[in-house]
Computed example of a mutant assay.
Amino acid sequence: MEVLDEPEWRRRTAAHEARVDAATAGHLTRRRDHRKHPVEDFLFTYYSFKPSQLRRWHPGAGVRLSGADASPHREWRFYSLEADGVCLDVEAFAQDRGDTLRFVRELLVRTAERPGRFGCFGLHEWAMVYRLDPSDVRHAGWPLRLGASGTDAVVESHQVACSHFDAYRFFTPEALPLNALTPTRESQPALEQPGCLHAGMDLYKWAHKLVPAVSSDLVMDCFELARDIRALDMRAAPYDLRELGYEPVRIETAEGKAEYAAAQRGFSVRGQALRARLVEAIDAVVVSDDAATLRP
């Protein structure tokens, strides 16, 4: 058990709050002004973790905060008083979140064991607007870079091979049968692979779902990976976002494909490191009798 004295955990709290404030300032300003951003708002609208929740600092399992009377954690769920400190009640957390722990651990481990695939070229975003009227696309306020017919032609001239259910489920009805795979929620552990941009972004989802057992430092590392991936995702999408400073990755060309795949490989490396840390955090919660049942 690592023990942090009061000056240290207060320092870490302040550093975390400053990190989150910098990451969320633009979104909070836009939300106040009733403005939207097709790239930067995604992590706050698609995922369920609120900026206020992200800002709350958690040390993670295996850390005791000394000076219990001064710590706000003593009033928070899954924390317990222990001697002159506050720490996560791992048994209570494992009992309450056992199903989530099992699912996430299995998904992360099985994903990490597979080779990454780097030939999808972000065509999932193109399949989400395939044969739609321009007024019906998700980001209708932004033009399609190649127009509607040009966008459809890109989809039709490529093999779409999306392995991620939460991307595939947004395909247009006409695009669904064009995909080489038919991912489902049930098949997610069998299909997820580390080259997938959405699997990398979802590391943030799995991290925040396991708060407070997962430390806030790890949650923010996953957030920052998801933010960086989202930028590539939309640069490679069919939308023209140059007005917002996003130079397109032209995946309809050989040069654009190479640029996309190189960036995808880099994100895969970062994602694999975070997967390992998340599995380690889950295993820190597993206690005695639960150990066997929480491992696939």
Results as ranks from 00 to 15, higher is better:
3 V>S: 01
3 V>R: 03
9 W>V: 03
9 W>L: 03
9 W>N: 03
12 R>G: 11
15 A>D: 13
17 E>M: 14
21 D>F: 06
28 L>C: 09
29 T>K: 11
32 R>Y: 06
38 P>L: 03
51 P>S: 15
51 P>F: 12
53 Q>W: 09
62 G>C: 02
64 R>I: 06
65 L>T: 01
65 L>W: 00
66 S>H: 01
69 D>G: 13
70 A>Y: 03
73 H>W: 08
74 R>P: 09
87 C>T: 11
90 V>F: 00
93 F>L: 14
94 A>P: 02
99 D>G: 08
99 D>L: 04
102 R>L: 10
104 V>C: 07
106 E>K: 07
107 L>S: 11
115 P>G: 13
120 C>V: 07
121 F>R: 06
121 F>Q: 09
125 E>V: 04
126 W>K: 09
132 L>R: 03
136 D>G: 03
138 R>P: 01
149 S>D: 05
151 T>G: 05
151 T>S: 08
152 D>N: 02
154 V>Q: 02
155 V>S: 05
161 A>E: 11
162 C>G: 13
166 D>Q: 13
167 A>K: 05
168 Y>K: 09
176 L>P: 04
179 N>E: 11
186 E>N: 06
196 C>R: 01
200 G>N: 14
201 M>D: 13
205 K>F: 09
205 K>S: 14
206 W>N: 06
208 H>M: 10
209 K>A: 12
210 L>G: 12
212 P>D: 07
213 A>P: 04
219 V>K: 15
228 D>M: 11
230 R>L: 10
232 L>E: 14
234 M>A: 06
238 P>W: 04
239 Y>K: 03
239 Y>G: 05
244 L>T: 03
252 E>H: 09
252 E>N: 06
253 T>F: 05
255 E>L: 07
256 G>I: 10
257 K>P: 12
264 Q>R: 07
267 F>W: 05
268 S>D: 11
271 G>D: 07
274 L>Q: 04
278 L>W: 05
284 A>W: 00
286 V>R: 04
296 P>Q: 06
296 P>N: 04
